[in-house]
Design a protein around this nucleic acid. Structure first.
Lengths: 135, 135
DNA sequence: GTATCTGCAAAACATTTGCAATTCT
DNA sequence: AGAATTGCAAATGTTTTGCAGATAC
């Protein structure tokens, strides 16, 4: 695996131990973890870790463009270091969040002519294939 | 204007004074108000109104399918009684939320084959036409 | 040695819950 | 009267802030 510390430096982020571990966690856990998820997962390895640091670090990652916030739930924010343009599907049955490909140009036509679009999110909700086949 | 009380009844909602006023407010203010917005706007006419009632009422509207929650901001939920399928653009400069037409089929192709899609949201962020022309 | 980063504790918000008072039929 | 609705006050849960101690260059 490549050097996360170097990657953070390249993006203008000082690579502290906590920041490296949090970024590695996001890389290895693409299930769109919450702050709570990240905190609990790393608290074993870094007993002194605080949620404040997790919040601070995620804010830095987002500001520097190496992670994004996913507000597909209305009560907690999830995070994703997978920066390719893609949509998120939330299964109301198994509560998983599944990535899918989106053609944003095909969706828009000439709506938003003259607008400058900086970020694009598509959230779908329903029942995923696996849950449908089980029932 | 048509009879809001009748409309609520048709959708299985008992038309109390508060519910009628809240629904009328959503109809007349399509700028995707927050609970705070609704509460403050109506508190003048209904001095005894509580935020609890606003929350309860909006939950009923959503359950009955006559309004939807818009989680385009990650710190507060907005509400929309405009139930046609459409996307939301948030201008980072003037902070307005603007509706636009979306072709969801065109965006998906054969991604999500076998999934049951019950709700669709598209959120774009950037600078709106008006703000761009001003600068 | 000076900047930055971390993390505790407290504060700030949005939202939910319990329950008693009110309203409606 | 009886059932539903309202609204206050308290609780909950997430995120932010202030600040003192630790760490890094």
């Amino acid at each position: 695996m490549y050097d996360v510390g170097e990657f953070l430096k390249t993006n203008g982020i000082k690579p502290s131990y906590q920041r490296i571990k949090i970024y590695e966690f996001l890389m290895n856990n693409k299930e769109h973890p919450t702050v709570e998820n990240i905190y609990h997962a790393l608290n074993g390895k870094i007993p002194t870790l605080s949620k404040t640091t997790v919040y601070n670090t995620l804010k830095i990652f987002i500001d520097k463009g190496i992670a994004m916030a996913i507000t597909i739930d209305d009560n907690e924010v999830r995070f994703d270091a997978h920066m390719d343009l893609h949509g998120h599907f939330k299964c109301e049955h198994c509560h998983q969040i599944i990535d899918f490909n989106v053609n944003f140009e095909g969706a828009l036509g000439d709506a938003l002519e003259g607008f400058e679009v900086l970020e694009q999110q598509m959230f779908l909700y329903g029942i995923c294939k696996t849950c449908r086949e089980e029932s």
